[in-house]
């Protein structure tokens, strides 16, 4: 086979496990998993950029483009097949990132962050004004079909859940493979020293551009899955608060492992549920405190707890 590492095996093994859990867990948990996988992919996209030292405060742009592309394909072209919708969402995101990448690849740090934010807010402004796309209300997306099969009721819910789990975890496994590849290694090096990279014989700009396009495609996929899960798209998908949430998840979960943002998203969703229940008017404060505590006590995110535990277990074994 393809020389799978532990994370890839875990992710691939996670597909049948998650699918089975879909039949066992309460419906609200399954819904959260489904939604979390969509947004988790966008957090993953933010994370892979962070590993190259690029913080995108506008990743909602591609989350929204993916969702709207799929939604518009359904609304205006009558496309309902989920496979075609996923491909459309990813391709449109990829294309937009290819264009925008020529501008963004020249900037780093706060300039990259602000420029990515600016682009996402341009789209937000546009979508909010476009009545044909429902302005600020957005529009609904019909249930997808599967190669001509149009399930209904609970079967439709399960089918969509399965159709979310498979591409999301496969995508995460592929991203893990990418981070282990020479191109992924170059990404790590990018964060550290661009001059050296250029003097080794490779283009830092090109590496940023490629990373940006990969992140956009993954976010586009996340956007389609999320939109199909909710059956709705609206401009909030590209609002700065949504993008900020993806950055929040990446910091909360840490960038140490590809699985971290997927867990982080789910944890955030659960925390949010309880925070809203505990304090309906000031739940954001609870999230803020959690964020603060994470930065102070776990600067490398929640995943560092697992790494610490692993390291201490190895030490014990050596003794």
């Amino acid at each position: 086979m393809m020389n799978l590492d532990r994370t890839e095996k875990l992710l691939l093994a996670g597909i049948p496990i998650l699918i089975l859990l879909g039949f066992v867990l309460p419906e609200w948990v399954v819904n959260y998993i489904q939604v979390s996988l969509g947004t988790g992919l966008v957090a993953l996209a933010v994370m892979i950029q962070m590993r190259a030292g690029l913080v995108s405060f506008g990743q909602g742009l591609y989350f929204c483009i993916g969702g709207y592309a799929a939604g518009m394909a359904g609304k205006f072209m009558g496309v309902s097949d989920i496979f075609i919708l996923l491909i459309i969402g990813m391709l449109v995101s990829l294309f937009m990132a290819f264009i925008a990448g020529f501008l963004l690849r020249r900037y780093r740090e706060i300039f990259f962050a602000m420029l990515s934010l600016a682009l996402s807010m341009i789209l937000y402004g546009l979508l909010s004004k476009l009545e044909v796309l429902g302005s600020t209300d957005g529009f609904n997306i019909p249930s997808p079909t599967y190669l001509g099969w149009a399930p209904e009721g609970d079967t439709a819910k399960h089918a969509l859940y399965i159709a979310t789990c498979i591409p999301a975890l496969l995508c995460a496994a592929l991203l893990n493979r990418y981070l282990r590849s020479p191109m992924g290694f170059i990404g790590e090096a990018l964060r550290e020293n661009e001059i050296r990279l250029e003097y080794l014989g490779t283009s830092a700009h090109r590496a940023v551009h490629i990373k940006y396009m990969i992140a956009a495609t993954v976010s586009g996929l996340g956007g389609v899955l999320w939109a199909l899960a909710l059956g709705h798209v609206d401009p909030e998908m590209t609002n700065w608060t949504t993008s900020g949430q993806f950055v929040f998840i990446s910091i909360l979960s840490g960038v140490g492992n590809i699985v971290a943002p997927l867990f982080g998203t789910f944890i955030l969703e659960i925390v949010r549920v309880y925070a809203v229940e505990a304090s309906p008017n000031t739940w954001q404060m609870i999230l803020g405190v959690i964020m603060l505590l994470t930065i102070i006590f776990l600067p490398k995110g929640l995943w560092s707890l697992i790494q610490r535990k692993k390291a201490s277990a190895e030490e014990t074994t050596q003794k």
């Binding site: 493979r177 990418y178 282990r180 590849s181 020479p182 191109m183």
Partner: peptide, 9 residues
């Protein structure tokens, strides 16, 4: 043209 899928190490 560095690979994007082949493991580096």
């Amino acid at each position: 043209k560095p690979s994007m899928l082949k493991p580096t190490i």
